[in-house]
């Protein structure tokens, strides 16, 4: 089962003894700070986890996959994530199937 904000809040409640409302607000606030930074074009560096950065994509030709019609894909800014060394090492050592 995928990790969600509700799971994260529950874990903060269990681990840190924060009350449920505080735990929920902190989880929401955490992701909101990340969104705000990226919105302000500020890259994020979370040591041990990874870095989020922004890339500017130029307009390029594309196709409507349904109709085959050619349409331009407009210039846009996209978020990219580069996992840190520590996270890559931890994930690499996982030997099972993806759940």
């Amino acid at each position: 089962m995928a990790l969600t904000k509700a799971d994260m809040a529950k874990n903060l409640f269990d681990e840190l003894g924060l009350n449920k409302r505080e735990a929920k607000e902190l989880v929401e606030g955490f992701f909101e700070e990340l969104r705000t930074a990226l919105e302000e074009k500020e890259p994020i560096k979370l040591s041990g986890f990874g870095n989020f950065s922004l890339r500017e994509k130029k307009q390029r030709p594309g196709r409507n996959p349904k109709t085959g019609e050619e349409v331009a894909i407009s210039a846009r800014r996209v978020v990219t994530f580069k996992p840190g060394q520590k996270l890559r090492m931890r994930v690499e050592s996982y030997a099972g199937d993806i759940k």
Binding site: L3, F30, F49, Y94, I98
Partner: peptide, 15 residues
Amino acid sequence: SMLEQMSRTLSSGER
């Protein structure tokens, strides 16, 4: 804790 939860989730093969 939140970053550790996220790392732990991915390193156990979950999304």
